[in-house]
């Protein structure tokens, strides 16, 4: 009996849930991380949300923590030292990178987040231009605000799209190329700048707003957009491949059709051939060919340059009830 009791006492002390626990009040939720790279040092800025109980209501406040170190790990350790609470990384919503950080340390940054199991892969990644990172982060702009801005613009203007870490990682693993949504902060005004292309872990080019809409349209990410004096109300893009022949079929609803097909087809062709000539596979079309026709993919060197594009449109014009006859009953 004594032995059993002894074992029980030892077991109780081993109950893992009771050891090393952290109270909810002792947690700081990391909502946004900003990374810059200047003079061979990482500049890490972390925005944390602290909840304070005030008059029985939880008051949210954003605190900005900052560190300048040689490596990202060192910078994070330094941030931990500055925080009185435990940093909770699982709720990270946004990673903001500067041009310098991408051009010099993009692969290292990606690897850091990939290796750390505390992060989930669903946080958005954006590129910041037009302002210093510290100025931007100290404005305490809510992460939700930035994410919603991107999300709303994807829906309403079509020249932006949310891209989470996992999606970027998937693209980088295919051919080291990807693209990011770009935000700009000039005169304390937050605006969206479309997409920035990344090639071999470095910034390659910035797309214009029209090009960003075309890219979204090709990737079936458009809901509403204004393109070539036409208002797109709905769009569905289907891509099929047959060896090096790529067919795009657009099922589009427009408010008015002002020569949409001809002009859009011209723009799309120009857009795709421009990057094809530059050897930049913007739509990962070679990967699509690899998936659908592997033997052809293997036999064809320089596949990207040999791709041909075909566009077909199925356009529906939204009926204007005021101009049509349909509403007048005829006897």
């Amino acid at each position: 009996m004594k032995i059993k009791l002894g074992i029980l006492i030892i077991l109780i002390s081993l109950l893992t849930g009771c050891k090393s626990y952290t109270e909810l009040n002792d947690l700081s939720i990391v909502s946004a991380i900003g990374i810059d790279y200047q003079e061979e040092k990482y500049h890490l800025i972390v925005n944390v949300i602290d909840g304070k109980l005030d008059d029985q209501e939880i008051e949210k406040s954003i605190t900005t923590l900052e560190s300048n170190k040689d490596s990202l790990e060192e910078a994070f350790h330094d941030i931990y030292l500055k925080s009185s609470k435990k940093l909770y990384l699982s709720h990270l919503d946004l990673l903001i990178l500067t041009e310098n950080a991408i051009n010099q340390k993009f692969s290292e940054i990606i690897y850091y987040f990939l290796e750390n199991s505390e992060y989930r892969n669903n946080f958005n990644v954006v590129l910041l231009t037009g302002d210093s990172l510290i100025n931007f982060m100290k404005q305490n702009i809510q992460t939700e605000e930035i994410n919603n801005l991107i999300k709303t613009n994807q829906k309403e203007t079509g020249f932006c799209a949310t891209k989470d870490f996992e999606m970027i990682l998937k693209e980088l693993l295919i051919d080291k190329n990807s693209y990011l949504s770009t935000i700009s902060n000039t005169n304390q005004e937050l605006t969206l700048e479309g997409f920035t292309l990344i090639k071999d872990y470095k910034i390659y080019q910035t797309l214009t707003k029209e090009e960003s809409i075309l890219l979204n349209m090709l990737q079936n990410k458009i809901q509403n957009a204004y393109l070539n004096q036409n208002s797109i109300l709905e769009n569905h893009t289907i891509i099929t491949t047959n060896k090096n022949h790529i067919s795009f079929r657009f099922v589009t609803t427009l408010s008015h059709n002002h020569n949409f097909q001809k002009e859009t087809e011209y723009d799309l062709r120009q857009f795709l051939t421009k990057y094809q000539k530059e050897g930049y596979d913007i739509l990962k079309l070679t990967e699509k060919v690899r998936k659908n026709n592997y033997s052809y993919y293997q036999q064809t060197p320089h596949l990207l340059s040999q791709l041909t594009f075909d566009f077909s449109f199925e356009i529906t014009e939204k009926e204007n009830y005021l101009q049509g006859d349909a509403i007048y009953e005829t006897q």
Binding site: K19, T22, E118
Partner: peptide, 19 residues
């Protein structure tokens, strides 16, 4: 330790599993 009980020492987890 890596996925579930990050805060708990490995040795404690090991001892609990062995027990």
């Amino acid at each position: 330790h890596y996925y579930i009980l990050k805060e708990v020492d490995s040795i404690i987890i090991l001892m609990t599993l062995v027990a």
